[in-house]
Amino acid sequence: MLVLTRKTNETIKIGEDIEVTVLSISGDQVKLGIKAPRDVEVHRQEIYEEIQLENHQASKPVANMMDILQTINDTKPRP
């Protein structure tokens, strides 16, 4: 991990296309501005992990078709 010290309004370049600028510092919070191409996804860590979990859940195989049909039949209203 590269560790850098920056002050307000100072920028870090990542490659040719990404800039991270320190916008403000207040107590233990740092506000960052990130300039990146539209095709580069930028997420907070907790949101990224949630997306990964949802993608993993969506990729799981569907239950056995007979189980699905049985569930549908069980939930149909009876005459």
Results as ranks from 00 to 15, higher is better:
residue 22 V to H: 03
residue 16 E to P: 01
residue 60 K to R: 14
residue 8 T to V: 15
residue 50 E to G: 00
residue 73 N to T: 13
residue 15 G to T: 10
residue 54 E to W: 07
residue 33 G to W: 07
residue 10 E to S: 10
residue 3 V to Y: 14
residue 54 E to D: 12
residue 20 V to D: 01
residue 71 T to C: 12
residue 23 L to K: 08
residue 13 K to R: 14
residue 22 V to F: 03
residue 73 N to L: 15
residue 26 S to H: 09
residue 30 V to L: 15
residue 20 V to T: 05
residue 36 A to K: 01
residue 66 M to N: 14
residue 9 N to V: 03
residue 46 E to V: 08
residue 21 T to D: 01
residue 24 S to M: 09
residue 34 I to G: 00
residue 68 I to F: 03
residue 25 I to Y: 08
residue 40 V to C: 05
residue 34 I to S: 00
residue 42 V to F: 04
residue 39 D to H: 14
residue 51 I to A: 07
residue 74 D to K: 09
residue 10 E to R: 13
residue 27 G to V: 06
residue 6 R to E: 09
residue 23 L to V: 08
residue 10 E to M: 13
residue 13 K to H: 10
residue 28 D to F: 13
residue 34 I to L: 04
residue 70 Q to V: 09
residue 73 N to V: 11
residue 57 Q to R: 15
residue 1 M to C: 11
residue 63 A to P: 01
residue 64 N to P: 00
residue 38 R to D: 10
residue 32 L to F: 10
residue 23 L to E: 06
residue 31 K to G: 05
residue 49 E to M: 03
residue 15 G to F: 11
residue 45 Q to G: 07
residue 67 D to C: 02
residue 20 V to M: 06
residue 34 I to D: 00
residue 72 I to M: 06
residue 54 E to C: 06
residue 24 S to K: 12
residue 47 I to S: 07
residue 17 D to M: 05
residue 47 I to C: 06
residue 27 G to M: 07
residue 53 L to S: 14
residue 66 M to V: 15
residue 58 A to L: 11
residue 32 L to M: 09
residue 20 V to E: 01
residue 17 D to R: 05
residue 4 L to R: 12
residue 12 I to E: 03
residue 65 M to N: 08
residue 48 Y to V: 03
residue 66 M to P: 02
residue 59 S to T: 05
residue 21 T to F: 04
residue 43 H to E: 03
residue 34 I to W: 02
residue 66 M to E: 15
residue 71 T to S: 14
residue 76 K to V: 07
residue 34 I to T: 03
residue 24 S to W: 06
residue 70 Q to M: 14
residue 61 P to C: 09
residue 16 E to T: 10
residue 6 R to Y: 14
residue 41 E to Y: 02
residue 77 P to F: 05
residue 63 A to Q: 12
residue 23 L to G: 08
residue 67 D to M: 04
residue 75 T to V: 10
residue 5 T to E: 12
residue 37 P to L: 08
residue 49 E to H: 03
residue 19 E to V: 13
residue 73 N to G: 15
